[in-house]
């Protein structure tokens, strides 16, 4: 379960202070899949960053599985992320020097797990990547890269998956394929998914849709 209490976040832009969140509160239960929508600049990505521990709020605290991530050191946060968190980006962000196989197994290996197991093999089949595993990112299409990124995010069977516009760079057909596969993979693991999107079609794949407007969540 994820709980956020009294989250305040602001940015300084030149001489101006921009308030992103002012006393934001919410709870996400395990296994929920939620689409987060809102206008550009509403703070969707910032919320994802706060939940992933990449950014810190000015005040308030966030608990994931009863662990407060707001007060963790960099080393502990890193460990936490690799054990409990999966992340998917709009720009795929694969490691260019590693093959698809090594990209997928990278976080598993960081956790001391074997590079492959039955689950990852199933995952690779589910994402239809079995023929592309020995290719480098530069040799893959955008859709394939995003599927590799999804496989990497899910390969460690994380409790929480954060996806930041994962279909934003893909055409409609590929986006549908990727979303189908993402949902299949999430179901396989029963992870919690928070997905940022501008597309109502993409949002329709998930259980709930939350809107972020003027620093508040409209559930």
């Amino acid at each position: 379960m994820i709980t956020a209490r009294n989250i305040c976040k602001e940015y300084c832009d030149a001489s101006e202070k921009i308030v992103i969140f002012d006393n934001l509160n919410f709870t996400i239960h395990s296994g929920e899949t939620i689409a987060l929508m809102g206008q550009s600049g509403a703070g969707k990505s910032t919320l994802l960053h706060l939940l992933g521990g990449f950014d810190k709020p000015e005040s308030g605290h966030i608990e994931i599985n009863s662990q407060s991530i707001s007060s963790m050191s960099d080393a502990r946060l890193s460990r936490f992320r690799r054990q409990f968190l999966g992340m998917v980006f709009q720009q795929y962000n694969l490691i260019p020097s590693l093959t698809a196989r090594d990209n997928i197994s990278f976080v598993r290996r960081l956790n001391g797990l074997p590079a492959e197991d039955e689950f990852t093999r199933e995952l690779v089949h589910a994402l239809q990547l079995q023929d592309r595993l020995d290719h480098y990112p530069s040799q893959l299409s955008g859709g394939e890269q995003q599927r590799v990124a999804i496989a990497r995010a899910i390969a460690t069977q994380p409790l929480l998956i954060l996806a930041d516009e994962p279909t934003g760079n893909l055409d409609e057909q590929t986006a549908a394929q990727v979303m189908t596969m993402l949902m299949r993979a999430v179901a396989l693991q029963q992870s919690t998914l928070l997905l940022v999107t501008h597309s109502p079609t993409t949002a329709s794949y998930l259980d709930k849709t939350w809107r972020l407007e003027q620093g508040q969540l409209l559930c």
Partner: peptide, 16 residues
């Protein structure tokens, strides 16, 4: 930068 930040997000500490 991008690659380093990526592996940081994937769980490698800045020090490492």
């Amino acid at each position: 930068q991008i690659q380093y930040r990526l592996v940081h997000i994937l769980g490698l500490s800045s020090r490492k």
